[in-house]
Design a protein around this nucleic acid. Structure first.
Lengths: 341, 341
DNA sequence: AAAAATTTGATTTACGTACATCAAAAATGG
DNA sequence: CCATTTTTGATGTACGTAAATCAAATTTTT
């Protein structure tokens, strides 16, 4: 049987009340007594029964999920996953609230984070925008003792406790190797379509991509990055334009969201030429494009996993428990035609 | 607030005792009363607080994990993951016992399964060997009301409740496309190294591989499968032999476990020729080979995920709860040099 | 309609922990 | 050494559910 608080009391030779004071860090225990209890806890290997504790506390973890009000398929998917988590939340003794903030607006995000300082939720998850003011706001929350995790996009240099997202440099490197290998030994130009170079994940993907391209595929040269602002029409125009102007393009890497415009442009232009295309994020559109051969591989991060992982990590933090690291590692999914879920 | 049993009682106009009788399927409730309670449950949307219920029951789920006594890196890894789960088990109110049975021995596995019928554990997970006697033994367990999930290797046609493993046909197809694309448009022979064609996962991988090869890469022809019985020395000999005899070989697909022999053979023979190699299962050996360029891509199933998923599914079954399907889908990991964990 | 059987209600205890209260004991200050 | 403060113990209630007991009400059988 698992040891209980009673066993601690017996082992330490103190009363239940004292054990409780130690366990819940209540005042009024002499230093020596506290040590006695703590060593008893270690000796008999007591671990608090979190379920029973939560029952007694009547506790519900109130978490806040901050998502950008962005209008692309990926963010819609992420939102849906958060909503699914909200739907499940009563069963898991969590009470998840979502907060929408304008996308790419550091000031608004920082302001939203600061309001949470008073509210003191049991944890905060956010899709971070990489800016000093956001970093500072996150640090303030952490210093107030509130668990914070970033999702999808990280905030390096901040005090956030955890990042539930993929390694974007590795993603870029992987894309480069796939593209390079798929192109065989061919020489030519590679077009890169990004949302915006102001977003950290996009910068990192490009960085990884460029590094491997330079190291391993000298025959391929990267054209200046096309910034489509994750807007279908804009992407369509810019990509069409690029493909018309440069017929040396043999490969495309789309590292941002909003691939609808890209796909349209590819369909129009690729009738007479063979292009190898790697894109990010599995959505309805990219899935169809992968199946019909317009896209050759899709790199993906599973939004559902990210959301669930973020919640698990916040919960563990709130309880002072540890997580299974391997379980919380968000993997980079590589999808070809054949292994689609 | 979540509704409780008291709320059901009030809503249905019956006593707590009656609610309890209905909830726990105890006898002595008239049909009409039972219906009244059940509709009240639906109306107010009651869901049992599993944590409280388990606390009251003093319940510990006792699960049995049957693993083959196989001596390859993958099975060692699986075993380690099961052990890690055992270590965590007290915290999760589970009591996991492992049972080792000889590998590839259907009779022994079936016998082991049959002993469990008396023991009546709360759930059984097994790495299935694909044989009628195993299927029958599994069906008997299921018919006795014991939750059963297969791990890594499935048992199609049986009544098992769930399979925690990858889609091996998709894995084979993916391997074929990767290999075909990596080889550009080149023509030549492809060698396939398997453990044994008697194992279902290996057969399925080959099936998927051969299908895509035939459909999409007519320039590549698959040589007769080499069966290395997952034995390093045997694999080394057979692969060396094949590489010496046929210098038309430009690609290798290793779909089984035990890649040490393969890697050794490749290192010896590939000094003077360029081979493209796809292998299964990320282990210390394959990881090094991937990094040094001996292997070009590794397909992997995450044993840790499989074990944790199996346990989650068994627990949910035991509680009569549903699982999050997307969370329990075991993904096929594709590793290149750049996205290794 | 009475006897027997079945169904329902009322109540209690338990699970492991949290938290509060009050009394008793011990340590500390002057 | 007494008064005061601090520390400790004893005890009870609560969380939501399970499970048991016994009495009361209802239904079924004869």
């Amino acid at each position: 049987m698992r040891p209980t608080v009673h066993d601690i009391a017996a082992a330490a030779g103190v009363s239940l009340a004292t054990v409780d004071r130690v366990l819940n860090q209540r005042p009024g225990v002499r230093h020596v007594t506290r040590e006695k209890v703590e060593s008893a806890i270690r000796e008999i290997g007591y671990v608090r029964d979190v379920a029973a504790a939560n029952l007694a506390k009547g506790r519900t973890y109130s978490f806040v999920f901050i998502v950008p009000a962005s209008d692309n398929s990926f963010m819609h998917g992420l939102n849906a996953e958060v909503m699914a988590a909200v739907a499940r939340s009563p069963v898991e003794r969590t009470d998840i609230r979502t907060l929408e903030v304008p996308a790419f607006d550091p000031a608004a995000l920082a302001a939203a984070l600061d309001t949470l300082r008073d509210e003191r939720p049991a944890g905060v998850a956010l899709v971070a925008t990489d800016a000093p003011e956001v970093r500072d706001a996150v640090d303030r929350l952490v210093q107030d003792g509130i668990p914070v995790v970033t999702v999808v996009s990280d905030l390096t240099g901040s005090l956030r406790h955890h990042y539930a997202g993929v390694d974007n440099i590795a993603a870029g490197r992987t894309a480069a190797r796939l593209l390079g290998r798929f192109l065989g030994g061919a020489s030519g130009d590679v077009a890169v379509l990004a949302g915006s170079m102001l977003v950290r994940d996009h910068r990192e993907r490009l960085e990884g991509f460029a590094a491997v391209m330079a190291e391993e595929f000298p025959g391929l040269s990267i054209l200046p990055v096309i910034e489509g602002r994750d807007d279908p029409d804009m992407a369509h125009m810019l990509v069409s334009d690029a493909l018309s102007k440069r017929d040396g393009i043999i490969g495309v890497y789309s590292l941002g969201a909003g691939n609808r415009g890209l796909i349209r442009a590819l369909k129009e232009k690729s009738v007479d030429r063979a292009l190898t295309v790697i894109a990010h994020e599995l959505t309805d559109h990219t899935r169809i494009a992968l199946l019909d051969g317009t896209i050759d591989a899709i790199l993906n991060q599973d939004a559902g996993h990210e959301v669930r992982s973020a919640i698990r990590v916040l919960k563990a933090r709130a309880d002072g428990l540890s997580v299974i690291d391997a379980q919380e590692r968000i993997r980079l999914d590589i999808f070809l035609k054949d292994n689609l879920p």
